[in-house]
Design a protein around this nucleic acid. Structure first.
Lengths: 251, 251
DNA sequence: TCCAGTATTGGACCGGCGGTCCAAGTCTGT
DNA sequence: ACAGACTTGGACCGCCGGTCCAATACTGGA
């Protein structure tokens, strides 16, 4: 009673089913059992094509991010290409919130690596090299992934916009109460009805501006800043250590 | 056979035990059963003080981040305060990698909110207001959380530094192969033995430089950039939509 | 002092999870 | 035609998060 299937079970078909489940029912609904059910097969068969659930998630994320990266190949203005690429990632994660969590789960999975390479090339085209390039690349990648993760988390949790509005209202109120300064008040009100997508792009522009500016791009200058920060760091190192906060009470 | 304990079971004691487990055995070892075992109690008792496991994780993260934020109160140079604060968060997450994952899991939990408020105040002291402030604040928070998450994920996975070195070597080799340009070669070699902490600070400095620069700070200018990006966005929107990549094959 | 009411405790229990194992059956090269 | 390699899918295992509830210890009023 275990005939060979006519519609061959392949890794691609499994990943495809995985993405469908993630998109339609959310990350919590992704169980190996759900995948087998959708493919009308048993569980042992799955593990012949996929090593484990993590592998499945990573492959699904690659399946979403890959085409985004491929779609931004032919643009010779580096800045515009960077904006298009980062926005493409943001929107992909907006459409598939589980990707945001996935890319922040593993450090150097294929999708992240591809993003790195792509952005690195663009930054190189902007004239960056050496430490300035790796620093700028890391900063951009980390910003994009962080922003996307936060946005995706928000989209995941506050499924209905009403809950999100409630929260932002509360936050704006609390913030406004804390500081009577009219400028803070203004910021609080802006916080209430901001647009994540526009805010994301604004962040990209901040980084691009920082990269273009001398103070961050020239090594000698940033070295001075770094040593300055290092002095501060040693002060706060004790706080960040293993024995921080509540955890230290009964080490 | 269920006497009342002499060492009262409290939410604080539970969170404390949670942090100990997370620090010593990693996130995967955190089970409600493990917490009850460490506290020598039953599982029902736990749920009298904590609503569920997510609550436990969020409380643990607050317990680590809270003291970091509290420790950077008395600095009147905004830039230095921002560097100290962000570095403090980075180092806290370096010491407690699970916090990195936790802060990126939920969008607006208390710890993230506190970070937001703290950085927002500093940016305001830098003269930012209105949209520029919220944009900059969001960008900085997202960068910090993203960088910390990536670093923490690396620390979690490549427990031994050798594995990490292996990966970076491979990446550098691959990158160098892809482009013969000597500048790229140089970047690749830098990638191999970079310091996450220094790179994190470099990113903060890029951000600060971007804030200081006119092109990102003045609304009218960035509006022009934004509309430019928006045009690109509509092009790539189809890629980022629900029907991206493999997932679309059998919708 | 006693007693009723409340809060706390902890273990039994449930459904579901990821992953392993293996008998049964099908394809492929010779 | 046949033997060996590969694929399939269901039984099974240990563990998980969360619920439920009887038993017990505190607490305040009479």
């Amino acid at each position: 009673m275990t005939p060979r299937r006519s519609d061959a079970l392949s890794r691609e078909r499994i990943v495809e089913a995985t993405i469908q489940i993630l998109d339609s029912e959310g990350e919590s609904a992704l169980t190996v059992r759900a995948v087998t059910a959708r493919l009308s097969t048993g569980r042992g068969a799955i593990y012949h094509h996929v090593t484990n659930k993590d592998d499945l998630l990573a492959a699904a994320a690659d399946g979403v991010i890959g085409p985004v990266l491929a779609g931004t190949a032919g643009d010779d203005d580096p800045r515009r290409a960077i904006r298009a690429l980062t926005l493409g990632i943001f929107e992909a994660i907006d459409g598939h919130p589980w990707v945001g969590a996935q890319l922040n789960r593993d450090p150097m999975q294929i999708a992240v690596l591809d993003i790195w390479k792509n952005l690195g090339g663009r930054l190189h085209a902007l004239g960056l090299s050496g430490k300035a390039l790796t620093d700028a690349g890391a900063a951009l990648v980390n910003y994009v992934l962080g922003a996307a993760a936060q946005h995706a988390a928000g989209a995941r949790r506050a499924a209905d916009d009403a809950a999100r509005q409630d929260y932002l209202d509360r936050l704006a109120h609390e913030w406004a109460q804390q500081d009577a300064d009219p400028l803070v008040q203004e910021s609080a009100s802006l916080l209430r009805d901001h647009d994540d997508r526009a805010q994301f792009l604004a962040g990209v522009d901040i980084f691009l501006a920082g990269i273009a500016s001398d103070s961050a791009g020239i090594a000698s200058d940033s070295a001075g800043i770094a040593s300055d920060s290092a002095g501060i760091a040693s002060k706060s190192a004790g706080i960040g250590s293993k024995s921080a906060g509540i955890g230290s009470k009964s080490g």
